[in-house]
């Protein structure tokens, strides 16, 4: 007859977690309770400014618990089960924090925050290197002319510090598709910069002020 309870949570193996969370009855209930406690403790340690009983920690742990149980078949066993579970709760909590922080910001505002402004005047101040302002013009031109509007918004929003989940939401896409969109934009920018006659060494020299 299989055991109906287990000992210390620390002694639970990865396979025990899978078995118990996939079981029914008291073993499953105990595993859920213990896993929830592990998620709350981990989250409270990494997000120190939130107390254990704060809604962010409690709700994230609960949401992650549901996700973990529903995705348990996707756990490949290439990490500790608890590490995998913690990675999910961290992502749930961070997504919620980022959502709350950015909820009232439009895509236009995100994009504007990362726009590189034109030079204030044509007269070049003595302390700005001529080459640096030339390079800036090449980059500004490339952003304006070589990117699609979506690529431009995504790249500028990222430059302005918007997290990818929030940019993806505004563009009606997911984080991986956004990465591909930005990747293609980066390739175009690179080509435009090289086409304008700038080598990687030359750029490095200018950026390092040499």
């Amino acid at each position: 007859m299989p055991p109906t309870t287990r000992g210390e949570p620390e002694s639970r193996s990865d396979q025990d977690w899978i078995n118990d969370l996939s079981a029914s009855g008291p073993l499953r209930e105990q595993a859920l309770t213990e896993l929830r406690a592990v998620l709350v403790a981990g989250l409270a340690r990494s997000l120190r400014r939130f107390p254990n009983d704060s809604p962010l920690i409690q709700d994230s742990a609960q949401d992650a618990l549901v996700l973990i149980v529903s995705r348990i078949q996707t756990y490949r066993g290439d990490s500790r089960f608890v590490t995998w579970a913690l990675s999910i709760v961290i992502r749930v909590a961070l997504s919620e924090m980022r959502r709350a922080r950015w909820k009232d910001v439009s895509l236009d505002e995100m994009s504007e925050a990362g726009r590189i402004p034109p030079p204030v005047s044509e007269a070049s101040p003595v302390n700005v290197s001529y080459e640096r302002s030339q390079l800036m013009e090449v980059v500004r031109n490339a952003i304006e002319n070589d990117l699609t509007p979506k690529q431009r918004d995504a790249i500028q929003a990222e430059l302005g510090g918007t997290p990818p989940d929030e940019i993806a939401k505004r563009l009606g896409t997911n984080r991986n598709a956004l990465y591909k969109l930005v990747y293609d934009g980066r390739v175009r920018l690179r080509q435009a910069i090289l086409r304008a006659g700038w080598s990687e060494d030359h750029i490095r020299g200018v950026l390092n002020g040499k």
């Binding site: 590189i116 390079l135 800036m136 980059v139 490339a142 952003i143 790249i155 990222e158 430059l159 990818p164 997911n174 984080r175 991986n176 956004l178 990465y179 591909k180 930005v182 990747y183 980066r186 390739v187 920018l189 690179r190 910069i193 990687e200 750029i203 950026l207």
Partner: peptide
Amino acid sequence: LNAVIGMAMSVLPEEIGCD
């Protein structure tokens, strides 16, 4: 400027996305 040039010039043929 530094960040966008970093994004452009660090492109590798094989990269993975966030997911």
